[in-house]
Amino acid sequence: MWRDALLVAGKDLRIEARSRVGLWQVVPFALLALVLFAFALGPGPVALRAAAPGLFWLAVLFSTVLAIQRSFAIEGGEGTRDGLRLSGLDPAGIFLGKAAAVALQLLVLQLVLFAGVVLLFGARLHTPWLAITASVLATIGLSAAGVAYGALSAGLRVRETLLPLLVLPVLAPVLLAGSRAWAAALATSPAGGGQWLKILGAFAAVYVVVGVVLYGPLQEAA
């Protein structure tokens, strides 16, 4: 399973590096979303700083949908979809590999977005370990749930419009817990941040298990 996961993750990341869809489309989209949110809130620095964690995670959430759609567009052709089913790869390994590739892209995206939050909103990180832990846990949850729902919608003609409808409500707890954990990390005192980490950890664990168990049947149904 782990060997298969590494193989699939390597393949997906190599394809992303060559196509540069993430670099030229997903990253600019996320930064644009951040700027537009800032426009909507107005120029007040206090309001922007207070909203920064929520806006950061909203941008991450929307970008996750794009990254998931891209991950399944790679396997979108009849040939490659069948090829993956005939490849001999463990479906659990395929799930973990695709989730890992999406997670790595999301972590890089968050670095860029964090720079944007610092520059645009004047945010300052007071508890880095809390923000980093929250990011890692939230990213695992987002990519695992996203890939599981991506597999669910993969074979459908309406997958591009269906995926956001399916996945955004499911990812709402990550938006909430991630925003609160980051709010604590940006505040001078990180009080209460730990409990949000537990929620993020539980969400990630549940969706990793769900994906490992259900990816095979979902792949068959697609």
Binding site: K11, R14, I15, E78, G79, T80, D82, G83, L84, L86
Partner: peptide, 13 residues
């Protein structure tokens, strides 16, 4: 080994 109408290939690779 199945060779179908659509080749199971990744364009970027």
């Amino acid at each position: 080994g199945l060779l179908g109408h659509a080749a199971p290939l990744y364009d970027e690779l």
